[in-house]
């Protein structure tokens, strides 16, 4: 696994709105290897989803604009491809699962029709072949009585079941990269665990790379290889999952970890939130975007945005301060 499956360099996405330019993604670079699972973590509005949608060119333009960057997937740049070429890639090479299974299914079409759609589009299956495979896929994601249930409508399925259907749909063409955009956020904890387990199992059998977008560090703890933390359209930390949990290198990651509710902790060690909310992306970034909420802030932070620098092997952080000692780097 020396060459990356997807290498994103300096991706920048903006939205031109009546209020001004929204700087949604500000020059991020990362890679993902074949079969690897990377989690992208951050609060709502930090640019997680926008950056992923940019890769698939699903950003509505206008008002959106991918103003710079490359995304080399298997030797070619996704961002240079035409809409037609992207249609061939979406769903077949790179599949996406969306956040809300309740609204991502068309309510007036049977599951069968929606499941067979991509196979007929990409693999040229006949109706019967596609239906046969759809039943297989549904069984694979653990939906009992699949042959009967493909004739049912989305409202006849619970949230967890629908997310399973979404996964079956995304996997039907055996993509080499799956982008999962908060697939468990709207689900119950128990179902959430089921979905994580399911995706982990399928990943092994298909040898598929996964980008898992979430705001909840806890959910991905057990399955990701690497974690990328985003804030205000920047990558602020990138590390192997164990390093990130054991020795977070950015104040924002620390804050995210502290905000997670914990079962093993009670009032003696109270959960902590950081005040304020993510910065207004309408204002062109100046200095470190996290500085106004940061407890380690020093003067330099307000002047200059720290670059992502390596602090350990496979561990980078964009901070002027060493959070372990509190001293400037």
């Amino acid at each position: 696994m020396t060459s990356a499956l997807l290498q994103v360099t300096d991706l920048q996405t903006r939205f031109h709105t009546p209020e001004g330019i929204v700087h949604a993604v500000n020059g991020i670079s990362f890679h993902i290897n074949e079969g690897e699972t990377v989690a992208i973590v951050g609060e709502s509005g930090c640019g997680k989803s926008v950056s992923m949608m940019s890769l698939l060119k699903l950003i509505p333009t206008p008002p959106g604009e991918i103003s710079s960057g490359t995304a080399i997937y298997r030797g070619t740049d996704l961002l240079q491809k035409s809409e037609r070429e992207m249609e061939d890639i979406r769903g077949k090479d790179i599949a996406m699962i969306f956040q809300d299974p309740m609204t991502s299914l068309n309510p007036v079409l049977t599951l069968g029709r929606q499941l067979t759609e991509s196979m007929r589009e990409h693999l040229g299956f006949t109706k019967e072949q596609a239906e046969e495979r759809a039943v297989q896929m549904l069984e694979q994601v653990g939906i009992p009585d699949a042959r009967r249930r493909i004739n049912e409508y989305p409202h006849q399925f619970s949230g967890g079941m629908r997310q399973r259907v979404m996964i079956a749909m995304a996997l039907s063409c055996a993509p080499s990269l799956l982008i999962a955009d908060e697939p468990t956020t709207a689900l119950d904890v128990t179902i959430q665990a089921q979905i994580v387990e399911l995706v982990a199992r399928i990943r092994e059998s298909l040898h598929m790379a996964i980008i898992w977008i979430t705001h909840d560090l806890g959910v991905v703890a057990g399955m990701a290889d690497r974690v990328i933390v985003m804030y205000a359209g920047f990558i602020v930390e990138e590390a192997d999952v164990n390093d990130l949990y054991d020795s977070p290198g950015h104040p924002y990651t620390l804050a995210l970890l502290a905000a997670l509710p914990r079962i093993d902790r009670r009032r003696d060690h109270h959960l902590k939130s950081i005040a304020g909310s993510p910065p207004n992306l309408l204002v062109a970034p100046h200095g470190c975007p996290f500085a106004p909420r940061c407890e380690f802030v020093i003067e330099k932070c307000r002047q200059e945005n720290p670059p992502l620098i390596q602090i350990e092997k496979n561990h980078s952080s964009a901070c002027w301060v060493d959070v372990k000692t509190g001293a400037p780097r």
Binding site: R84, K92, F98, T103, L105, N106, M166
Partner: peptide, 14 residues
């Protein structure tokens, strides 16, 4: 503007 249209685009539908 509903999600499933985006989803359909996501699987490469024209």
């Amino acid at each position: 503007s509903r999600k499933f249209v985006l989803r359909a685009r996501g699987i490469g539908a024209g």
